[in-house]
Design a protein around this nucleic acid. Structure first.
Lengths: 328, 328
DNA sequence: AATCAAATTGTAATCGATTACATTATATAC
DNA sequence: GTATATAATGTAATCGATTACAATTTGATT
């Protein structure tokens, strides 16, 4: 592949002029510009990003940190991030940490040594101390999961309110025996969603029963199945369930289906509105976050940060999507 | 962030010596090495990849082309690619083309101008002509989807054989009225899977009925639902269905469930063994490709290519995973 | 034709690393 | 102590672009 010197030689001009043509500088005469463009075509030249980036000390690459790409919750957010980034001539690097600190380090180092211009973290398992350190010197945005009273700008939804509304929906349908499937409460979103669940129950004077609150070890489907099985073995069986994520809710549906019960159906509400939520049997009532928008706005925030501009935290609106799982 | 000059100054040595320490050259005395390491610690130095990469003219970044990350088929392959890449000190850039040629161009250019060292394409919609051009000068590997008699090395499974076995399984269960849900046959894998379907039927002297072969417009769930609805409206209803992808098969299951039929259950077989295949109701019988392995091997092939080594095409073994959808 | 401002183009430093080659320090042999 | 081999370190070119500044060309004006 040719370099800028060869183009300059071929066009009979200096490298500076070639660079001016590449960067659309106006101070190039049409005649010269044409000569250069011809040379570029003839030699099939593409400017080296490495050279350019080194000189400009930017890479136009953004890192997106997430625990794993298999989680369908992230896909729409990523689409938003990607579209916004590309429109602004940036590219994104999806960084799967698998919740492993070594991985995290690799990616943080990419930022430190200029291989990437900034980070959007969607990883609830991220080492916040390290991330805060990074954020002191480099642009970082938190998306979805965030730190209350932290210094890193974030974009999220009001999980507490959303959970409250989800549970209120179940109550309005006549349910009083409402179980909660939640995950490890070291994650802020889990604590907030539980808080919303409790607020709804309290508002309607329904006592909170600990035996109807199940804590899973992870967010995957099979934990949802397991949780629901345990809940169905309780002395008094719940008539409805709120799960703090769709994958858990879909697991719960499976467990309910497998019981081949002839009683009243158990209502289920999830959280996230992943694409599979509309493919299950029954389809799943859930809280929809504006994920695409969230990705877009997060990226805009990051790009502002990269330009050293101040950014404000954002809380986006959510929506309750009612489907078959609360209509049977 | 400090640079190599500042480290050299602080340690009282030349930049060459610092570089030697960084690159673990043996020709540095323990004393000097120590001085340099102390300076690196003190200034919290991280070498710039840009400088290093420019000089070495490599980026240690691999591109992974795929139509969209939301497709669960790719997730395990990506895990394999990622693990292998990281183990060899490479990183991967997931490139979602959304089947848009502009996007494709952006990524091809990254390779041409040295921002990436090679490409693994898993995108059946890729512009093969352009990819072939790229492959003349840069390392490229095809993963899963490939070109028969093409020049680009590939890794895949035997789709025809797998489909044949899937359909044979349905026949052995006593089915004779077996429908096929396939996609646009411009994709090689679709043609091969159909061929396998036909071979199985022919072997057992079952006539091929065109009205039981439905061509969808896409691979998404809702196309599967639609296809199955049409098939259920045929004069003679099929007793079993083979879908060329799990998302289509899961759609078919949904359509069958919705009919609330009291007849014999319809057996369904999918293809890919995506993670959701074990979460559906009933769980899905499907063909499992060794996706993680495929990702690993593809990456190894690409790294060999980068080192200018010759590589051979690979055809991996598949497996029929029998679940509830063919056991009811 | 001479003058001068504006437009165009060129020269060379720069970004941060690596490395061939030159130089200096150290160890060994006599 | 001197010569020589070897180990350690330094000097400076290099990768491919951008850009401040300098130099040159162009064109308008008198």
């Amino acid at each position: 592949m040719a370099n800028i010197q060869q183009i300059a030689k071929r066009a009979g001009v200096s490298v500076a002029t070639v660079s001016r043509v590449l960067n659309k500088s106006t101070t190039v005469s049409p005649k010269t510009r044409n000569k250069v463009e011809v040379a570029i075509k003839e030699l099939n030249y593409e400017p080296s990003m490495l050279g350019r980036n080194l000189r400009n000390s930017e890479s136009r690459l953004l890192l997106v940190l997430l625990p794993n790409i298999a989680n369908p919750f992230y896909t729409e957010i990523i689409n938003g991030i990607q579209d916004t980034a590309i429109a602004r001539d940036y590219n994104i690097l999806l960084c799967e940490t698998d919740s492993k600190p070594e991985r995290e380090n690799i990616y943080f180092n990419m930022v430190k040594n200029k291989l990437a211009d900034g980070v959007i973290s969607m990883d609830p398992t991220v080492n916040m101390q390290k991330l805060n350190e990074l954020a002191e010197h480099y642009p970082v945005i938190l998306c979805s999961e965030y730190e209350e009273n932290g210094d890193i700008p974030y974009i999220t939804v009001d999980s507490e309110l959303a959970a409250y509304q989800a549970v209120k929906h179940l109550i309005k349908l006549g349910n009083e025996k409402i179980a909660l499937i939640t995950s490890d409460e070291k994650y802020l979103y889990a604590r907030l969603r539980r808080a919303g669940y409790e607020r709804a129950l309290e508002e309607f004077n329904i006592p909170i029963r600990e035996e109807w609150i199940y804590h899973t070890k992870g967010l995957e489907f099979q934990y949802g199945v397991h949780a629901m099985r345990i809940l169905l073995q309780q002395e008094i069986e719940p008539t409805a369930v709120f799960a703090i994520s769709d994958t858990l809710a879909i697991g719960a549906l499976k467990a309910i289906n497998m019981e081949a019960r002839d009683q009243e159906p158990i209502a289920v509400v999830g959280f996230d509105n992943i694409s599979f939520a509309s493919m299950t049997n029954p389809t799943l009532t859930t809280i929809s976050q504006p994920m695409y928008t969230m990705g877009c706005r997060a990226t805009e925030m990051l790009l502002s940060r990269i330009k050293k501009e101040k950014v404000e935290n954002i809380v986006l609106d959510h929506e309750l999507i009612i489907r078959e799982s609360t209509m049977l």
